[in-house]
Simulated assay, not measured.
Amino acid sequence: MTALIIDTDPGVDDAFAIALACSSPEVDLLGVTTVFGNVGLAMTTRNALRVLALYGREDVPVAAGADRPLVYPHPHRARHVHGDDGLSDRSNLLPERRTGVAGTDAVSLMASLLEQAAEPVTIVPIGPLTNIALLLAAHPAVRTKIARIVIMGGALDGGNVTATAEFNIWSDPEAARRVLVEEEVPTVLVPMDLTHRCAVDAEWLDKLAASGPRGRLLVELTSTYREHYSRALGRDGTVIHDAVAMTEAVHPGLLTPTSLPLEVECGHGPSRGMVIADRRGTAARERSGSDGGREVAVATDADLDAVRAFLLARLGS
């Protein structure tokens, strides 16, 4: 079993990622924490509870976390992509969960779950990294209880919220730098470059909708999101970024990692939130007098058809 904690800002693709974790028998879902991001914290928390309710997971504790970045105000949400409620304005289609939020905050819940865990835990942050940065800063002893952190975020070759930055990293670059550059916890970054290549088409979505009530509901949540990505892709389809990252967490091996030193731009110019990967190679870095710093496993390739087939099989079950 893979013990998981999900840190999330649902968000349509977050909903697919939570659904994937709930649909994977090898996953022991210990907890879900929420953060600001695609919409405000109250709505991301409500959405997380409702997606868990769809899968009958009353047992999974949920705690709300940061409602703002570590340092600077968050410029804007992503309502134009995810809808005003984060789920294409269709969150009311999901059932209410009888069990509400835990009587603690996100960082405290994660620390407690890690301290109690018998084996190291995988943390899957699929929103801004504020909660994770706070956890590692406030509870350094839990590092040894983390198997790895699997992050959806960043873009090596051009962003989506700016020309250089991907939304999750751009939302709190200071937190992202803490997690990706300053820490020593084993980390996998699944960037937008790869998740875009794993885009699903109308036929895939139709198959998921036909798979059963849960699959149909997931597809219904994509209406606003699908319109946005159909324009971006130039064809009917969508990109379920966070579910691709969750694939790495629950089924390692479908994505191909490359170890790279990273930097996160925290200035206030047009490159704020940019993830910079040093792809020169070890010899070139040594010749320049740079040790490159800590290396992160960046998912740079995948068997795209295998990823799509895996997602359809699990989400349609």
Rank of each mutant, 00 (worst) to 15 (best):
R308F: 08
L217A: 10
T300L: 09
P261H: 10
G65W: 02
M274F: 00
L218C: 05
S223I: 01
D157T: 15
H228D: 00
V275W: 09
V181R: 05
L29N: 07
H241Y: 14
I18T: 11
R46Q: 14
R272N: 13
D305E: 15
S290Y: 01
E119W: 01
A21T: 05
D84F: 01
R143H: 07
A138R: 15
V185N: 04
D59F: 05
P191M: 04
P252L: 12
A15W: 02
L315H: 10
K207R: 15
T122D: 12
P25D: 15
P213N: 07
S211K: 07
I240P: 01
A111R: 08
V71A: 12
A299E: 14
A313T: 11
G281L: 01
D172A: 11
A118P: 00
D291Q: 08
H74I: 09
P120C: 14
A78T: 07
R98M: 01
T238C: 14
R143P: 02
S171L: 03
E203W: 07
T256L: 12
I18K: 03
D193H: 07
R143K: 15
G253I: 08
A141F: 02
P75S: 13
L260D: 03
I149H: 06
S317V: 12
L218K: 01
V190L: 05
V190S: 07
P120D: 11
H139M: 04
L221P: 02
N131F: 01
S108R: 14
G281F: 02
S211A: 15
G159C: 14
I5N: 04
L54V: 04
I169K: 09
F310W: 14
A53H: 01
I123K: 06
P120G: 12
A21N: 02
V307P: 03
V181G: 08
L54Q: 05
I126Y: 12
L109V: 10
A15H: 03
T224N: 11
A165G: 09
E96G: 00
A78D: 13
R314P: 01
E263T: 12
T8H: 02
A137G: 13
